[in-house]
């Protein structure tokens, strides 16, 4: 990349060259090169960024921050939503582990807590919300219905387990799981996000 940059920096165009015969090709090439010049980070910044990535601690810093601030998407569909709310309420406080801001917008969230049964009508919405979450994103299947269809196993309108639709990271058993169970699931997710979990 650096040698191409050097050539464009020369300024003179050889009218006799084979490249000039196809003007459009030449134009594209020039545009691409200029785009590369613009997008290239500041050299000092690039050096700092490389140094930071080379440090063994940096990966753990990133992991630490992701682990301790896994913001959930409030996707409480049914009964497990009540236990999810209890999980966020004052007794088992989710926020002290970084599980803040139960938002209904997926754009700022890291974890999707699927709480409740998912019907066939709801599948496109579930998928859309999951796709709207920015990576890295995770899914916790909360409760029996999200894990395997639960008591509605034989219903005609139910998806038997959210893992038929989404990739699931943690399954929580129970109908509904106690809020303490969800807390343990959160800690398991934190382990999965990386590193040892400080209790």
């Amino acid at each position: 990349m650096s040698d191409v940059g050097g050539d464009a920096g020369a300024g003179a165009i050889d009218h006799e060259s084979a490249e000039f015969r196809n003007a459009k090709q030449e134009m594209d090439r020039l545009v691409m090169e200029s785009a590369r010049e613009v997008g290239k980070p500041n050299a000092m910044f690039a050096r700092l960024s490389d140094l930071f990535k080379a440090l063994p601690a940096s990966r753990s810093v990133v992991k630490w921050s992701r682990r301790n601030s896994a913001w959930p998407l409030q996707f409480g569909l049914a009964c497990c939503a009540i236990e999810m709310m209890d999980f966020g309420a004052a007794r088992i406080d989710a926020e002290r582990k970084g599980y803040l801001f139960f938002r209904a917008t997926p754009r700022q969230c890291d974890v999707m807590l699927v709480a409740g049964w998912v019907t066939k009508n709801m599948v496109p919405e579930v998928k859309r919300l999951h796709e709207q979450m920015a990576e890295p994103r995770h899914v916790i299947a909360f409760g029996e219905c999200a894990t395997c269809g639960g008591p509605w196993w034989e219903s005609y309108n139910i998806v038997r387990g959210i893992d038929q639709v989404l990739p699931v990271d943690v399954y929580v058993a129970g109908c509904p799981p106690r809020p303490e169970n969800l807390f343990a699931a959160l800690m398991k997710l934190q382990e999965k996000l990386g590193g040892v979990v400080e209790v």
Binding site: A78, C79, W117, T119, N121, E125, P151, S155, Y156, N157
Partner: peptide, 30 residues
Amino acid sequence: IGFLHRGVEKLVETRMYMQSPPYMEKLDYI
């Protein structure tokens, strides 16, 4: 509506009497 429809009334027809209370409870989960 209909995003939470699971056909409780139909499911209950296939269960014995005392198999159904868990279905009924999940109707109003509050």
